[in-house]
Design a protein around this nucleic acid. Sequence first.
DNA 1: CTGAAAGCGCTAACAA
DNA 2: TTGTTAGCGCTTTCAG
Lengths: 381, 381
Amino acid sequence: MAKTAGQREHTVADVAREAGVSKAQAARALGEYGAVSDAVRSRVVAAAERLGYRPNQLARSMNTGRSLSVGVVVGDIENPYFALATRGISDAVEEHGFTVVLSNTSERLAAERTAVEMLMDKRVDGLIVAPSTTEAGHLDSVLQAGRPLVLLDRGVPGLPVDLAGSDVSAAAVEAAEELIALGHRRIGYITTSRNDDNRASPQEPLSSPVASRVAALAQAFELNGLRWDESLLRDGLRGEASIASAVDDLVRDKATALIASDSLIGQVVIAALQQKGLRIPDDVSVLMYDDQPWARLLNPPITVIAQPTYDIGYTAGSRLAALIQRRSGLPPLSPFPGRLIRRASFGPVRSAHTGAPDAVEPLEPPMQLATDAGNSTCTRD
Amino acid sequence: MAKTAGQREHTVADVAREAGVSKAQAARALGEYGAVSDAVRSRVVAAAERLGYRPNQLARSMNTGRSLSVGVVVGDIENPYFALATRGISDAVEEHGFTVVLSNTSERLAAERTAVEMLMDKRVDGLIVAPSTTEAGHLDSVLQAGRPLVLLDRGVPGLPVDLAGSDVSAAAVEAAEELIALGHRRIGYITTSRNDDNRASPQEPLSSPVASRVAALAQAFELNGLRWDESLLRDGLRGEASIASAVDDLVRDKATALIASDSLIGQVVIAALQQKGLRIPDDVSVLMYDDQPWARLLNPPITVIAQPTYDIGYTAGSRLAALIQRRSGLPPLSPFPGRLIRRASFGPVRSAHTGAPDAVEPLEPPMQLATDAGNSTCTRD
DNA sequence: CTGAAAGCGCTAACAA
DNA sequence: TTGTTAGCGCTTTCAG
């Protein structure tokens, strides 16, 4: 009964023999290309069925030059942002018959380089990468090799490729202005990324999320005739301990509001605050990037800047598929606007009458079960 | 300056010519196999460098029969459990030089079958799958083909393969007994999976997580001379709406405690409870599987059964690598024990004097920043 | 140690 | 429509 495992796999040649046709005809029937008579096709298909034949994609890829797979290089699949984006990518590319080869870089450039190289060697048909820095050498050579590339979440100055991401600047300015109106003057920004704002020219849009978000923060201060204290930026943080101690530092340094650059950081920030017995928003106001479902479960629910993460991933995937299929005349990808979702983690600065809290826009309606899917309504004018 | 993109990639033949040696020697030097003199090796390496040569892994895989990639088939990479497990898998297999090809099934059997087939066709060297059902046909043929297979999270009755997962039964019984001691008699269990307990023989361990967890629940009742009302099981739930309405149902049906089978469900359950204005634990006690960092951020923090998810993934990856390398005499994988983390979402049943709440074990110590990494200390005896 | 030649399993020309 | 013959880029005999 138990078939001897590991028996040599059948090849087109076997099927051809079994069906009594030439290898080429069998291959054509199996691969669904070329011209094959119905009679032959059915004989071949039947023979293949009988033998349990399965085509060898490797061999197929070798002569077609198409591996039907795309590489996805992210900082960390464990990060909900990347997990969700990857799901979007996966759904999109699978619709076009591609599979996803995944690589984690832990946000390290060296790992990213290695990953890109491996994927290129594996001859993936295209690449989606969330660059961990603005270093572009390895990405440049992807382009040189003529392999389609789409950037995810973060752009790279001077690299002329599609970027699927969001533009949170309007929402960021909006949020910062509300904090300022509430009397906050010392706002801390906490992030894992390094702020390496080395765009080629000043005109070029800020591509690094850190840079653009920090810029938005600064801009909000300027709009109010104030100046943001850059010493309140904590970047390049790795590990919970360093994030927690950054929170400590900032609070000791009189920060009255904290901005977490993603939900992983947000978690730690909130935990650190709770641990220190500081209350949100009474003692410290909090803004978090990425709207994770749990943000509205907390007490108080956390005000966030949401990005349509799944859609961003899906867009990246679709665009990559289009590029691989050499479709031309594709319009540039426009960033999804980020959206400020007001909940209850903003409050006036204590013992500060710096400005009577203006009537801000109303909070998010009571509670919805559906996740805030899809189209953002950014209230920019 | 701008190199004409898309120029034909260099092959070993090119490198050989450039180095003035035979193709075979060049290949040996580049592929690091066979015997090559230092002189030749360095000439070849230099030539390769000069030409920017990159080996074609597809071609390499074709004749070695090893693709250096493993397939990972999960229900949904968006689920934090799978995201983290995948990270573990990825880290483990990369140490052995493998890359991960990822597939999402949305917990649908058809998608799972297709995914497994594609991966087999792509000649992955091994497979890790989190089976969405106990259907084993497609997995069986993986084995038949002699390709190593490791199961993740869920077992399949009658399929003799390694399973990397955890055994939560002790913790589950423990939790249920505490609920019972608090007076709870109607405990609802909410899950996405289907409860298809079709193990071959009664002796066989329960492999489906649903079945084993439900069994643990029932066992706890029996230990107390009671019987769990099976009508309080809500399985096969898809989508937030159906989960929320299951919560509605259960509460209306006098459930005083709710168990969420994973954190995705937990989120929705808690949101639904909040929406209905029901308080945890005053009105409803809550237990959640999987310890997500946010669980301890809530008010009250949620009592959970934690699994070392990363380790589970890492174990799966390591074992798969070992199997691919035909290492033998490997001990069977033992499940990681689940661990009950007491927080504050359990409370006595209101207006019920069914049993004076025993002195239960103390709550988790104040608050730790480090995630509960690694080794579980299950208090089973 | 080195080189020539023969494949891996399939697709792609080219005739017939 | 079919079959024959070459390859894809690499590894692997097998002589030398």
